[in-house]
């Protein structure tokens, strides 16, 4: 049973569990095991919204932009100047389109977590962050080898240190540069979205659970629902922050691959 239908049914399963993240199929004609769930719908909607929004906003660019164009230019300008150029330097401009796409895609996907009637982010399923992190991972390794050839391994793995400590340091460099990076990217995004949804579930369902258990607890239930509203605002801050962090870290890994030695 999903969180949303449980709330309507009023006899709520509490506490919420990981099972609440696995939504049933929403195809009216398909069986229960059809693959088209709300998560799939939100993924398709995110892609469609972003494509249509940017196409419409840039279709007839004006010197004095209207609201749509202003918003689109602000997003792109922010990523280009404050992330790509700031982190990577002049060369960063050529990564700005990818970074802007990454930023707006993650932001849109996260935003479903607080949009009424959707209220779960597809990024709370780890498959989505894993793919995004893999793209960043392949990209910075590819760029490093393309720029430095095989010498990239020396730049990435051999720190400036006396030769006799190197055998201790090189495995750590390998571990933290090539293994921890994709994991931490994926898990940071996933865990934040998962925890955000879980928190909202706990406070919403907890309110119902308390009011069902004892009517005298009704004021506490109301308090719990007020907390839900407050946490939704907190979630919005986290949504924007995580989209930003993912993009900044990807840019910083690209910068590390392009940098001239240490």
């Amino acid at each position: 049973m999903t969180g949303q239908t449980a709330v309507l049914a009023a006899d709520v399963p509490f506490p919420p569990s990981v099972g609440d993240f696995y939504l049933p199929s929403i195809v009216p004609w398909g069986g229960h095991d059809s693959w088209f769930t709300k998560i799939t719908l939100m993924l398709w909607l995110s892609v469609a919204i972003l494509i249509i929004f940017f196409l419409v906003a840039y279709r007839k660019p004006q010197l004095v932009p209207d609201k749509k164009q202003w918003l689109a230019e602000s997003i792109y300008g922010f990523v280009r100047n404050n992330i790509a150029v700031e982190m990577i330097g002049k060369e960063g401009v050529r990564f700005a389109p990818y970074l802007a796409t990454l930023f707006s895609f993650i932001f849109m996907m996260n935003l479903w977590g607080i949009i009424p009637f959707f209220q779960i982010s597809p990024n709370s399923h780890i498959a989505f962050p894993i793919i995004l992190a893999l793209i960043s991972w392949v990209m910075f390794i590819y760029l490093g080898f393309k720029k430095h050839g095989i010498g990239y391994l020396k730049i990435a793995l051999v720190p400036p240190a006396p030769w006799f400590i190197l055998p201790i340091l090189v495995p750590i460099e390998f571990f933290s540069n090539f293994i921890v990076r994709p994991f931490s990217l994926a898990i940071r995004l996933f865990a934040n979205m998962f925890a955000g949804h879980m928190l909202l579930l706990v406070f919403t369902l907890g309110g119902f659970a308390m009011i069902n258990a004892n009517l005298w607890l009704a004021p506490v239930s109301v308090l719990s629902w007020l907390m839900t509203i407050a946490l939704t605002f907190l979630d919005f801050a986290i949504i924007a922050l995580q989209a930003y962090v993912f993009t900044v870290l990807t840019a910083s890994y690209i910068q590390g691959s392009l940098a001239e030695g240490h």
Binding site: M87, I172, V248
Partner: peptide, 19 residues
Amino acid sequence: PPAPNSGGGYVAISYLIGG
């Protein structure tokens, strides 16, 4: 040069834990 606090904290944590 790139912004000084560009993920430096995450790098530090990953070195410590990685080590």
